[in-house]
């Protein structure tokens, strides 16, 4: 599904990713853990195509296609989804209008018919109920006045509607209380399928109690320094990054 080889990237001339090698097979959920400043968020932005990062070496293929050559919207349309650590507020853009526009953009790319406002509402209501989201969140501006938990749920709602093949969850657990964490985890677990993979970027092991990964990778100073099974997350929690990576 996703193959990253020797990826190096810098921002404003400062190297951040220093040779990342990583493979996520179809159907697997992988966690990336690492201390602050290790390059976790940079990796998620580079994969989703945000401007401002210079790729200086290496390659990323997504189902055999060169991901780095694609515009952000092309990556999204072909099935890459980034759940933002800090979802962006869009005053004046209604959430329903935003969600439907995104859904139709992706559906057009897949050759599927667009959904009208009524069809969309039916779809959205089902998903929102699963995420315990009040319906008035459709009427508000995108993420405007949303609490931290509501913003994260709105991210998971977008994922559930767009049905990506690869979801990158960037610190989706930050700022969530335990109830919200469970709801968000349930939303991710519901996506599990043979053709769905996820890259779960997190600082703490807590989220991984609810979304059990197939593999755990430790990212330090822009490199994957250790990989292992789910138990690696517990080791990290108990002993700290420095100890485990040594």
């Amino acid at each position: 599904m996703l193959r990253i080889e020797g990826l190096t990237a810098e921002i404003d001339g400062k190297p951040i990713l220093q040779g990342v090698d990583l493979e996520v097979p179809a159907g697997e959920l992988h966690a990336i853990m690492g201390p602050n400043g290790s390059g976790k968020s940079t990796l998620s932005y580079v994969l989703s195509g945000r401007e401002g990062y210079e790729i200086t070496g290496g390659s990323v293929t997504f189902n055999g296609v060169d991901l780095l050559a694609m515009e952000p919207e092309e990556r999204a349309a072909s099935g890459v989804f980034l759940a933002f650590q800090y979802p962006v507020e869009l005053p004046g853009v209604g959430n329903a209008n935003f969600l439907r526009t995104a859904l139709n953009a992706v559906r057009r790319h897949r050759g599927e018919p667009e959904v009208d406002a009524m069809q969309f509402l039916k779809l959205a209501r089902v998903r929102m109920k699963e995420l315990s989201m009040p319906e008035d969140m459709l009427k508000r501006g995108v993420n405007v006045g949303f609490s931290g938990g509501e913003k994260k749920r709105n991210e998971v709602l977008q994922m559930a509607l767009l049905r990506p093949k690869l979801a990158i969850l960037d610190e989706t657990d930050s700022g969530l209380d335990i109830d919200a964490l469970k709801i968000v985890a349930d939303g991710v677990n519901a996506m599990r399928a043979p053709d769905f993979s996820a890259l779960i970027i997190t600082h703490y092991q807590r989220l991984l109690d609810y979304i059990v990964p197939d593999r755990v990778h430790v990212l330090m100073a822009g490199r994957i320094v250790k990989s292992g099974g789910p138990e690696l997350a517990h080791e990290l929690e108990a002993q700290g990054y420095a100890q485990v990576a040594a």
Binding site: S48, G49, R50, E51, G52, E71, P72, E73, R75, A76, A77, F81, L82, F84, P87, V88, L90, F98, T101, A102, A105, V106, H109, Q158, L162
Partner: peptide
């Protein structure tokens, strides 16, 4: 706003439409 523009594009919405 570049962050807003990227957010929309990351959801599959083409640049001009965003």
């Amino acid at each position: 706003d570049a962050a807003q523009l990227f957010y929309l594009r990351s959801r599959g919405i083409p640049q001009e439409q965003a």
